[in-house]
Amino acid sequence: MIKFEHVSKEFISSKTRFLAVENVSFEVQKGDIYGIIGFSGAGKSTLVRCINLLEVPTIGNVYFDGVNLTKAGPRELRKYRQKMGMIFQQFNLLAQRTVLENICYPLEVAGVKKREAKERAEELLKLVGLEDKANAYPAQLSGGQKQRVAIARALATNPEVLLCDEATSALDPITTKSILELLKEINQKLGVTIVIITHEMGVVKQICNRVAVMSGGVIEEEGTVKDVFLNPKSETARKLILPAREKLLETGERRVLRIVFDGQSSFEPIIAQLVLETNTLVNILGADTENIGGRAYGQMLIEHQSDRAVMKKMKDFLRRKGIYFEEGGSQE
């Protein structure tokens, strides 16, 4: 669906040169919800803008449905952009247009008749749950509502792809969750491929199936969310998954285990069982778990002061339960 081939983007001004994206190759399959994660300044926003050529790559090729967009003329490119919706952190709605008129905008651009456009816009408003706000202006809406309008607008021309540039970063956690759920629904119901740029692991965990980890303009690792989350290979991925990990690994005598919950039943008292079975007290250093539909997702850091034999028991127990873990702390 989307394919990058050795794409680099360098910003050149009179005084400075800045390589924002360096030799990036990756592929997004149809139906994916593809996350691109990284810290600020990693080049994610530039990368996503290379998909619809809002930023023209300095070198490399960008393919959309097998067509090389970097070779397309301006008119042709505009046609392809209509097949790619985009939403932004700051929503970017037209402040002087009503909600309905905002959603009509891409249809006007595409040359759809007024009445048809209005019908389509009303349909989309229903999809995002804002039928009653058709005649409101953006200034009268909350952040979450604005993003819903932006999503409706991005979907107006029936795009095959939806690009999300930090779409939830300006929203509170509850609104973020509801927007992500809406995106997932759009992906499942309408079959729209989604590319999400974010700096929050939680976003990737909640809806993505694949993820690319970016740092310094380079994709450091790429794979299914499960693989990257369970077994992060790059330093950046580790930091994103567990921000405080570095510090914990430095704590001399302690033994730390990172336990990852990946859809185990949340009704099973794993930690309590672990304690009973090994007869060792553990200290929970930190936990970030969620219960989604009776299943546990997330991770927990536990600390213990036990010898090798007990340690082995613990590991056996976890393996038996099918729970992924990782050792930290000082090891003999």
Partner: peptide, 23 residues
């Protein structure tokens, strides 16, 4: 006029003339 709004208009496939008259 907010640069982000113009960027959004571009992303929706607007021509320069459409950006001038409609945005």
């Amino acid at each position: 006029v907010d640069a982000g709004v113009i960027e959004a208009a571009k992303a929706m496939g607007s021509s320069p003339a459409q950006i001038i008259y409609k945005v």
